[in-house]
Amino acid sequence: MGDDRRSFLRRAGWGLACLAGAGSATELAGAFLRTEEETGGGKRLGMVVDLVACAREEGCTKCVEACNAVHNVPSLRDPGHAVKWIWKERFPDAFPDQEAENVLETVTEKPAVVLCNHCDNPPCARVCPTEATWKRPDGIVMMDWHRCIGCRYCMAACPYGSRSFNWVDPRPGLARPSPDYPTRTKGVVEKCTFCDERVDAGEPPACVAACPARAMAFGDLSDPKSEVRRLLRSRFALRRKAALGTRPSVYYLV
C-alpha cells in the first residue's frame, strides 16, 4: 500500500513536471515563432503615402509640424540629439534597396516622408527586454515610456532609423508644450505611435489630417473595402526594405 502510494506520488510528480515543462516550452516557442496570422481582431492599421502627390507640394512640412506640435516633439540644438517622429529623407536614403538611378525622377529625386513603419513583424519589439515596445492587436507598434529602461537595443534593431532617444531633457526644446500630451523624460526611447490616442478616439493621425495635398491615407489594411486597400489597388506601391521580412504597414504609391 505504502509502496503504491509512493510510486503514485512519484509518477504524479513526474507527470506534473512534464506538463509544466511542456507548457513553458510551448510558451517559449510561441514567443519565438510569432506567426503572421497572430494579428488579433483581424485588424491591421496602416498608411498609404502618395509620393507623387507629396512631391507636388515642394518644401511642405505641414505633416511634420502637426505631429511635432501634437506630440511635444522637441527641437534641440545638437543635431545628434534630435528627436524625430515623422520627417523627410532623400529617396535613395529612405529606399536604399530600390535601384533609383534615372528612374521616375518625379519621385526618386524628391524627398520622401518617413516615419515608424509599424511593422507586422517588428524587430524592435522582438529585442525589447522589458516589453516597453510591442505590437498592439490592431497593428500599432506601441511604446510604454513608463517602462522603457533606455537600453537602446530597439534602436540598433530598427532598420529604418525610426527611433529616437532622449539624450537630454526634452523640455527645454519645447517652447509651448501641448498640455494634452505628455512630453518624454531623458533616458527613454520614443517614436511615432500612429497617433494611438487619436486613433482610439476614431480620428485619423495628425499628419494625415494636416496634409494639404491629401497625400496620406490611414486605415485597416486587412479590410478589402478600406480606403488604403482601394489606393493600393490603384497603383504600384513600395515598402521600405521589404526584403528584410519586417512587413511594414506604411506603403508608398509611386
Binding site: 515610456w145 509651448r176 508644450p177 501641448s178 498640455p179 505628455p182 512630453t183 518624454r184 523624460t185
Partner: peptide, 14 residues
Amino acid sequence: PTCWECHIEPKERA
C-alpha cells in the same frame, strides 16, 4: 512621484 517629468502640470497650461 515622477509623473511630472513627462505629464504637464496644470500651472504650465497657457
